[in-house]
């Protein structure tokens, strides 16, 4: 398998895995039972999407690798997810802001990825898009409810939007791998995705009676995740996720 394509697949899978893992932390802590279940469902959708890509990679690479190899045995620097998804959940408003930003990105990204030249990636995009359509509906609905809610909920939602804003730019900043594969595989054009994303976010914020954070005018964004330079948070996630495999390698139950 071409090593660029492998990295590209890892980037997609790691985004879904880490986002799913973060959402799974809500299990048992949701504000109400129904939302708790919704968050767990969305977490499972994401982890499922990651699994199908890891399984595809394992099959391509052979050497006795399984889907578990990728999430359980790589160290921080080998993970290629964007910083946005590894950030701590914060409160419910924070999580909904993070989800809105990521779900809207995934929605337009998968819509475009359906048209790419690689049949496996196109198939993964097609399946994931159905799930992501619901995720986006869920998160935008909550951002609107909380933004256009009480004075307190509005304040929290506005703060949450500002908290995560500087992590959104990385989604649209192509890595060297994305640039090199873009033409040959007809992969999504991130500039185009950014315009669609921005339009959707403005729509939601407007309906939620929220405003763009002041920092959005500066146009400065955090980056690094796509090349394996992560925040301090990813290490803690991996410590949690990989403990069993590190302590008891290849254990089964």
């Amino acid at each position: 398998m071409h090593s660029d394509l492998k990295q590209y697949c890892l980037q997609l899978a790691d985004n879904s895995l880490i986002h799913g893992h973060r959402l799974s932390e809500w299990c048992g802590h949701g504000p109400i039972l129904e939302v708790d279940m919704a968050l767990s469902n969305i977490a499972l959708d994401n982890i499922g999407a990651a699994r199908s890509i890891y399984a595809f990679l394992a099959e391509q690479e052979g050497e006795g690798k399984t889907e578990d190899y990728y999430p359980y045995t790589r160290d921080v620097r080998e993970f290629l997810n964007v910083l946005l998804v590894e950030l701590p959940n914060g409160d419910f408003a924070d999580t909904m802001a993070k989800c809105l930003f990521f779900d809207a990105y995934q929605f337009y990204f998968y819509t475009a990825l359906k048209q790419c030249n690689d049949s496996t990636l196109a198939a993964i995009a097609e399946k994931s898009l159905k799930e992501v359509t619901y995720h986006l509906r869920f998160s935008s609905e909550w951002v609107i409810r909380l933004g256009d809610g009480t004075e307190e909920s509005k304040e929290n939602m506005q703060r949450a939007i500002s908290n995560f804003w500087e992590y959104t730019g990385e989604l649209f900043q192509p890595s060297a791998i994305e640039t090199s594969l873009q033409k040959t595989l007809q992969l999504p054009d991130l500039n185009l995705i950014r315009d669609q994303w921005m339009e959707k976010i403005s729509e939601v914020l407007q309906e939620a009676t929220l405003s763009f954070p002041l920092s959005s005018e500066k146009g400065w964004f955090q980056q690094g995740g796509k090349t394996g330079i992560h925040s301090e948070h990813l290490g803690f996630i991996l410590a949690d996720l990989q403990f069993m495999q590190r302590a008891y390698p290849n254990s089964e139950w």
Binding site: L33, E34, A38, N41, Y134, F138
Partner: peptide, 20 residues
């Protein structure tokens, strides 16, 4: 049955609770 603030939310929550 479930608790929800309006019909839209009730249907979305029902989707998550009763059709998973």
């Amino acid at each position: 049955s479930l608790h929800a603030s309006d019909a839209t939310m009730a249907i979305e929550m029902a989707r998550d609770v009763y059709t998973r």
